[in-house]
Amino acid sequence: MKILVAIKRVIDANVKVRVNADNTGVETANVKMSMNPFCEIAVEEAIRLKEQGVASEVVAVCIGPQQAQETLRTALALGADKAVLVKSDEELESLAVAKVLKNIVEKEEPQMVLLGKQSIDSDNNQTGQMLGALLGWGQGTFASEVKVADGKAQVTREIDGGLQTVELTMPAIVTTDLRLNEPRFASLPNIMKAKRKPLEELAVADLGVDIAPRTETLKVANPPARQEGIKVETVAELVDKLKNDAKVI
């Protein structure tokens, strides 16, 4: 079976982001960008399914500016067979992303689409579910284990009280949680090889998909700052502060 993996290019998880001066967004100039960590887990899972002989081909897709090509090359270096870049200089909302992905799914006809559970920039946690609904497919969100057999996928999901297992009829959507796997690193020879793997470029405007924004960001602000705290020297002092100053115990 064929697997489609959707990946996103985001500000690196370790960067401390700064709100820009005119409060319209965060500073992105000269900031390190990387593959969204949950997307790395999705790519890793797709490659493992290929190594197990479950998947025959892994196609990575990314919607973003020309530079997102680097993110796709990373996926190719990790083991994806082919990449599709849907070029868009505007950041799309997740509904628009889901519609673009539906278009790509209809072209590529995968049996499974793997996505991260959320991107660490918008923290929306929507795209996989939206794609599932638009395609009419079942979904295994927040997956910590995926087993594929006999045209079905058994997905163990991380839910608030523990774990839940669902069985999905293929084709299906899976979104990855942190504990699904430990992503590998790309080796230098594989990075070189990835340069020769096919990377198709499409323009989002040519797909005929409705990507008009539905929301406006009126303002982006810093979160309220916490008052500076104090250091205490002893346990007795701590207990005293909590009892008498903060009055929380």
Binding site: E93, S94, L95, A98, D123, N124, N125, Q126, T127, G128, Q129, M130, L131, G132, A133, L134, Q139, T141, F142, R157, E158, I159, D160, P213, R214, T215
Partner: peptide
Amino acid sequence: ASTFGKNFMPRVAALLDVQQISE
């Protein structure tokens, strides 16, 4: 916005052709 709400609400939004506002 628990794992319950996060799981199904974006499906509702997509079927209604609405951009969900999360959390």
